[in-house]
């Protein structure tokens, strides 16, 4: 937060919102891998929201759904159709994994928009695990399903023979950059948006510009709602695209 410092100016700490703090015990206690932290809390809330939407809201199993059940069915149909359209009918058995990723990112993003909350998906440590999990799963699956012919993904047979080696190098580099871009896209979007929100909120302390700052916060907030959904969508659809490459490497 921004607070008037001892020198009388403003000092912004837009990155403090991303700090991981132990939920119990003294602030500053060491954070080891099992420590229950604010990250644990907000990830747990995401789990609670998933359970609320998909277990509590669908408990009626109604033929004519109520609002909650409609939303759950809509989300299900949205991702199911995405997997079917992008990856193909044979990829439907991977739908639960993809749906898990989508729901986690979606709820983490949206919960992060609650003021003074914490955004797990703004952490490269979190998104990198997601992205590398996709990367390794897809690569291993590609070799298991296709054997050595999976390498045909890098050998573009539709191109003239002379430039195929060049393309192979480019394809190879782009393949290994995938998890990096995949994770940084999500974390970067979330970090930037939340940092900008905090900066605008900090400016709101100066009376002269506070109306603009608050308008700015409102505008950026609206943008962040969009970003929260779009990033979850993008992450999911890219996962589908990568999975398609693994299942059908020869296009």
């Amino acid at each position: 937060m921004a607070e008037p410092s001892a020198e009388g100016g403003l000092s912004f700490h837009p990155m403090d919102q991303f700090m991981i703090k132990p939920l119990f015990g003294e602030y500053g206690d060491p954070v080891s891998w099992y420590t229950v932290t604010n990250l644990t809390l907000w990830m747990g809330l995401a789990v609670v929201c998933v359970a609320g939407l998909f277990v509590f809201a669908t408990r009626g199993r109604a033929i004519i759904p109520d609002r909650g059940q409609s939303v759950a069915e809509l989300a299900y149909g949205f991702v199911y159709k995405m997997v079917e359209d992008v990856t193909g009918k044979d990829a439907v058995k991977y739908f639960p994994y993809i749906f898990t990723l989508f729901l986690f990112i979606l709820f983490a993003n949206f919960l992060a928009l609650i003021p003074s909350s914490f955004s797990p998906t703004s952490h490269i440590g979190v998104t990198a695990v997601l992205a590398f999990a996709v990367f390794f799963a897809v690569t291993i699956l590609g070799f298991v399903k296709n054997g050595a012919s999976f390498l045909g993904l890098f050998w573009v047979t539709s191109a003239p023979l002379a430039i195929r080696p060049v393309l192979a190098v480019i394809e190879l580099i782009s393949y290994f950059v995938r998890p990096v871009s995949h994770s940084i896209r999500l974390a970067g979007n979330l970090t930037a948006g939340h940092a900008v929100l905090k900066v605008f909120a900090g400016f709101a302390q100066v009376a002269a510009i506070s109306p603009f700052a608050i308008l700015g916060v409102a505008a950026i907030y609206g943008l962040e709602v969009l970003v929260g959904f779009i990033q979850a969508y993008v992450f999911t659809i890219l996962t589908c695209v990568y999975l398609k490459d693994a299942l059908h490497p020869n296009h």
Partner: peptide, 17 residues
């Protein structure tokens, strides 16, 4: 901490689903 709790969360969501 992030990796551990992320894996716990993903497994929890996966199981619920």
């Amino acid at each position: 901490n992030q990796i551990f709790w992320l894996l716990v969360t993903l497994v929890a969501i996966y199981l619920i689903l």
